[in-house]
Design a protein around this nucleic acid. Sequence first.
DNA 1: TGATCATGCAGAAACGTGACTGTCAACGCG
DNA 2: CGCGTTGACAGTCACGTTTCTGCATGATCA
Lengths: 362, 362
Amino acid sequence: MSRAETSRRGSRPGRAGIRDVAAAAGVSITTVSDALNGKGRLPDATRRHVREVADRLGYRPSAAARTLRTGKSGLIGLTVTTYGDEPFTFTEFAYFAEMARAATSAALARGYALVILPATSRHDVWSNVALDGTVVVDPSDHDPVVSELVRQGLPVVSDGRPAGSLPVTAWVDNDHEAAVLGILDHLADAGARRIGLLTGTTTDTYTHLSTTAYLRWCERVGQDPVYEAYPAHDPCAGAVAADRLLARPDRPDAVYGLFDPNGTDLLAAARRYGLRVPEDLLLVCCSESTVYASTEPPITTLSLKPRRIGTAVIQVLIDAIEGLHSDQPVEQVIPTELIVRTSSQRRPPRTTVSPPRSPEGE
Amino acid sequence: MSRAETSRRGSRPGRAGIRDVAAAAGVSITTVSDALNGKGRLPDATRRHVREVADRLGYRPSAAARTLRTGKSGLIGLTVTTYGDEPFTFTEFAYFAEMARAATSAALARGYALVILPATSRHDVWSNVALDGTVVVDPSDHDPVVSELVRQGLPVVSDGRPAGSLPVTAWVDNDHEAAVLGILDHLADAGARRIGLLTGTTTDTYTHLSTTAYLRWCERVGQDPVYEAYPAHDPCAGAVAADRLLARPDRPDAVYGLFDPNGTDLLAAARRYGLRVPEDLLLVCCSESTVYASTEPPITTLSLKPRRIGTAVIQVLIDAIEGLHSDQPVEQVIPTELIVRTSSQRRPPRTTVSPPRSPEGE
DNA sequence: TGATCATGCAGAAACGTGACTGTCAACGCG
DNA sequence: CGCGTTGACAGTCACGTTTCTGCATGATCA
């Protein structure tokens, strides 16, 4: 029965199927499949011949059919808990962008592609895409999507240790407690007497762990906690909270801001109150943005190394997908990096400013 | 033949198939399919019953099987031309992030999801995912991936008008020429006598159109062009080029920077040379970043409205996918927005924004 | 020389769904 | 009462792969 060539006339004229290749090469579809996938036992001559014919016909195997047959789609879901309507979160934006970039790159290197999906539980979208696994960034306590995916037997790896009893397959995170303690010690070493904190009102683990570490440090060294909390998803609220923190009667002489925009917010607030940085106020914030290298003055930042996290998350997830999870632990901790700049050093290395060369005094 | 329940024992125990639902509901799989998809003619009682049983079993239709059958996957590829190894480009990063966010949101609203794919022509990844269409951001002259996709009959919509004879289905872009002319007029209105340009050495259409518009404007008003070009993908090269521009003997008294980081670069360079902004130097740059609202001084920026572009690209693409392209043009121009701040106003307290163009100029 | 075995390939069964076709009863109508 | 019509479903094929099974053919060996 030669229905291959004839009955396919109704399909896309530009797309050739495996049967067309088989007919053109004078072999069976089994041979074509084996030749192209490197399976079976075929002489090199046949293999080369089939590949040549396939190339000539512009044959591309149907991803849908392959997925249906093999059960593997090569797709990995990427989702971020969102605080608003947008699919991405606002606050950790530079972090997420870097992390997503590294994750995309790492996945691509192993033959997988990333699908951006909403954290909301929209069944119609989630169930319409065949996933091999999912990356969840900063999952909330009882994320219904995560539970559903795990229930379906899909591996789920989270960026950020899961809160509560979220049944993720594995997670990758920083040691936020150690990072905060390191910063506070760094500020104290630079001469800070009263260190304030700009934190969030959200209940995610990052905010929680960092704030707890701050409070414990304060207790240890005998300092009264000085902090302001604000809803981290509101960009304006950060500026207001920074202003409030510096307007307090017990004004801190050093501040650590947990979120990316806090550096500029605090800098602007300091200017308003006539505080010089770092002479009157030491500043550190957690950020991946490069703008803090060229602010006036440059601001010391804590990098959570999103590139490394994104890469690690993907490696762990794909290992789980391919059944290579072996004996390594399913919990991975990535070290943070403190990028020390002028804003946290009481004695800044006076940079010599080159004199302005004015060619024609204006 | 009741092989449905028995032969499926080898599959995932957590996943029920349509046959399981049919058996549990006491109907045929046709009825299940019709009931869940709203097709056929079924009494509401049967429809509700089937849906209830499906929910109870946690039935989720196989996306792969549905894709194979219907030919639609609900997936849209998103790719960006890359200048390095990373899948995303560096320079237009804030732009791309905003655009991708809006595109994701718009796609989700219509039941589609976005797949991040590399611009490189890696067949093994591209052909492993079943796409309904693709968004290409700033495609290069003769992108082989685009040609291949179009050849397969897939709709391709580009962000940025295609260079050369790239056979895209449709495109969405700003009017870059008008934007540049508007900025130059704006700077001239503010008192600029010699306006410089910080541009790129790349050959993409954005850089090309903008630079050409600048040169034409210079010719029209009789000013010698003063510009520096640098490879836009190198973050350090921007700072060097900004420095070089302000070190020239024919130093401009106003500069427009085509790329996102140019604002901070130029500001830093101006500080090095003791130039006050805006008194000695007027500054505008093209950026989507919010940091320019709180720099010292705040910098006037041109926004390309990536949110609107991302949304428009997705709408056009999905219309093409679903065959709704109707009679509207396949080329859509999104207006830019000039966000005027202190850096481009010689008299800061002036709040009223001067009208953009004066047709009776030189 | 017949049994064993590796080689090179073909046939056909799935994968899970959507859609087309067919069947059977009930019903209205002349 | 016979007949066309319609509602409510069931059976079955096809989507395009991968893969299991199996059949020839020639080589090797006891």
